[in-house]
Simulated assay, not measured.
Amino acid sequence: MSDPIQLGLVGLGTIARNQHLPALEEVPELRLAAIASRNATLDDLPSYHDIDAMLAGEAGLGAISLCTPPQGRFAQAVAAIRAGRHVMLEKPPGTGVSEVQALARLAEEKGVTLFATWHSREAAAVELARALLSDVAIRRVEITWKEDVRHWHPGQEWIWEPGGLGVFDPGINALSVLTRILRDPVRLERAELEIPSNKQAPIAAQLAMETASGAPIAAEFDWRQTGPQTWDIRVETEGPEVLLREGGARLYVDGQERIAAEDREYRRLYARFAELIGAGRSDVDLAPLQLVADAFLLGAQRAVEPFHE
């Protein structure tokens, strides 16, 4: 086997500690070699205040994984790509479609891999659902994605700022699964965004979409749900009904459970990143981000009560 690719991780917040670090331990093609974070370090690893210092201090790095908030990530990615490093982007890949398109062009010019990740597409049941739906007519899709923002994003103000996406931060996960399991392209028809009067991003949203063949898709996203959380996608077809639950970890076909598996999404992402680097390819699918951008363009905005932690 060849030596593992030396990887630098930028950002050491909750998602990095809970997902990225454990995943990297299980992907032998990559080795975590350095950290860049303004506020945190890891024992036994070189740590830097920012990506520029890390790039200057770690000549052996072959790849960079960016798991910082989307605001400001463009400049980090540009620095890494211009330095000749392969780059993996946490979702959402950027604050807008155009900036990720610019990164894709730059990566192609520099001959490096750019991987815009959608971790929910790596949930255990997604690929089987895609296979089941590949040759049947879709009648209707219903998405219910409701969770408690206080549990998942305590004290994180960036999610309420422009570019932070608000409830679309989790909602884009559903859209990433939707655009993976359906063979037809999806377009947005209309949306309603509920925005707290003291915030700049929605706390809830309702989307009406349809496939290219005319099947309706209804999506409801809400960040105010307490108790059990709901991450479901139900697909009614001319054949079996396909239901993804728990974000794609569980699959039901006509009410019968077919898959129930543990979370290995980020391990699959990093394995895919190593595979792309080895093949000299990039993977930049912007369909989920485009649907969110369309929701902000087309969505009717409705002010709701202020949100406080």
Rank of each mutant, 00 (worst) to 15 (best):
A123R: 03
P240Q: 12
W231K: 14
W118Y: 15
G171H: 04
D50N: 15
T117P: 10
T144W: 15
A59G: 15
A125H: 09
L9H: 04
V149A: 09
I195R: 00
E147M: 15
R140W: 08
D135K: 10
R121L: 05
M1R: 13
H86G: 05
T226D: 13
A303T: 15
P22Q: 06
I172N: 04
V292G: 01
L45C: 09
G278K: 07
E26H: 14
T14D: 15
E262S: 13
V177H: 06
H86Q: 08
D222T: 05
L89P: 04
G171W: 01
P202Y: 01
D3G: 13
H20L: 07
L132Q: 10
P28A: 09
V112Q: 00
P240K: 10
E25R: 14
A191Q: 02
G255K: 09
E309N: 12
I138Q: 00
E147K: 13
R187H: 11
S2G: 11
P196Y: 01
H119S: 14
G84P: 02
R150V: 12
P196A: 03
V87Q: 01
H119P: 14
R250W: 15
N18M: 14
D52G: 14
N198G: 08
W231E: 13
Y48Q: 09
S176A: 15
F221D: 01
Q101M: 11
L32N: 09
K146S: 13
G8F: 00
C67Q: 12
I5K: 04
L24I: 09
T179K: 02
E257S: 10
E157C: 07
W158E: 07
R258I: 12
L193R: 03
V141G: 02
R85Q: 10
D263G: 10
G214D: 07
P170A: 05
P202G: 06
L276R: 05
P240V: 08
H153M: 15
Q256K: 12
I233C: 04
E189G: 07
L55S: 00
E210A: 14
F168Q: 04
E189Q: 10
G164R: 00
L175H: 03
L291M: 08
L12G: 02
L21V: 13
A40M: 11
H308W: 10
K146L: 15
P92Y: 02
G62Q: 05
R245N: 12
E246W: 15
P69V: 05
G111D: 08
R268P: 08
Q200V: 06
L45Q: 09
A16P: 07
G72H: 08
W160S: 03
A33S: 15
L55R: 00
A124M: 01
P28G: 07
